[in-house]
Design a protein around this nucleic acid. Structure first.
Lengths: 200, 200
DNA sequence: CGCAGTAGGTTACTCGAAGTAAGTTACGAG
DNA sequence: CTCGTAACTTACTTCGAGTAACCTACTGCG
């Protein structure tokens, strides 16, 4: 089997087993066995157990970024930006429950560099939100814009975890909840609103 | 040394080393050495490495609950409840930066049951917030109240992590940021507002 | 055809750290 | 002063991450 294909297969299997049993409880031998290959192959391609985990996170991160970017491409107003971005996020989580659990709960604790990867995902999101805020409010205090973005990401992430425990709550409703809480506060800070003309 | 005292000492040392190096990179031998005792003593009192970690989390959780409960005791309005609760939380984090990092970043991934303990802390917070919301809006949809509480907790937690990277941001400013984003949205849902009479 | 180089793979180890069995010391009560 | 127990230790076993060394089959080329 060619290398790229084998690596993708390894990531898929590892993601599944990590999500099932947790990072610590999973042995490299087990992953190797389920892939149908011997342990040194995993080390050949990923260097270490941590490297394998990071590979999983990295792949999910790329996918999430692509989906979100595509979703917000057609947005006009800041409200639409936020709403479409949130919806894309919740839909992604909904489709990848297991890997999401892995990313959010397993990776962060186990390994410092995996933690950095997960932080990278958040950074990617806060950057996007911060950019939206700044584009509609050029004179906003940068520190405040950053804080707002962090708050939105934190709220969203937490609600995604909660959504998993509530089968009746889907991506659309989750988006509504987040928007209901944060939009009044966020919009109050936007000076350059889209539809109405800017007052000063 | 009596058992209770020794256990407390072990927790203190373990918390410190876990926070310094991460859960995985810390060996029981190292903790034992720094406590000035042999490894089997740790196992005698905490059963396992995981048990020791959970002990750390549990102690922090108790302390956090006590501080928060004390802080919101004198609150009159829902806004004051939230504000005082948030402030108490950020102050707690500010005083326990290292153990906070441990709880948030290390514990969750490494060990399933540690994760449950951390979720217990969040549960404790969402319950408190949910109760405040419900007490001021008895007719609120319970699911919505839960979602709101999760959002507030998520936003707060995330901002606490961010606060660590921003030395210029203290508990007071962090509280202001969170309130600025969430309060307009939350208050819009409260039917029984404190100062003005309820319209219908 | 035959053979060289390499991609893809394996077996069989080392080593470090979690967890344990069995034994030792200190000390207060009868 | 000796019995019982709480607090503690040394010396293991076991398991899993990571590695060294070796193998195999295919592809291109004289």
């Amino acid at each position: 089997m060619p290398k790229a294909q084998r690596m993708a297969q390894m990531l898929t299997v590892a993601e599944e087993i990590f999500a099932e049993q947790g990072y610590l409880a999973t042995s490299m031998d087990e992953i190797a066995e389920r892939v149908g290959v011997s342990k040194p192959m995993l080390y050949e391609y990923f260097g270490s157990k941590e490297g394998l985990l990071i590979g999983c996170i990295h792949r999910a991160r790329t996918e999430l970024r692509e989906k979100t970017a595509a979703a917000i491409a057609g947005a006009g107003s800041p409200e639409e930006f936020l709403r479409l971005g949130l919806l894309a996020f919740f839909e992604f989580i909904d489709e990848h429950r297991r890997s999401w659990a892995l990313l959010r709960q397993e990776a962060a604790v186990a390994v410092p560099s995996a933690q950095e990867e997960v932080e990278g995902i958040r950074q990617q999101q806060t950057d996007m939100i911060g950019a939206v805020l700044a584009s509609f409010t050029p004179d906003i205090d940068p520190l405040e814009a950053e804080a707002f973005a962090e708050i939105v990401v934190g709220a969203t992430e937490r609600l995604a975890v909660w959504m998993e425990r509530r089968p009746s709550v889907g991506p659309a409703l989750a988006t509504d909840y987040v928007m209901a809480v944060i939009w009044p506060g966020v919009s109050a800070r936007l000076t350059k609103l889209p539809a109405p003309a800017r007052p000063a």
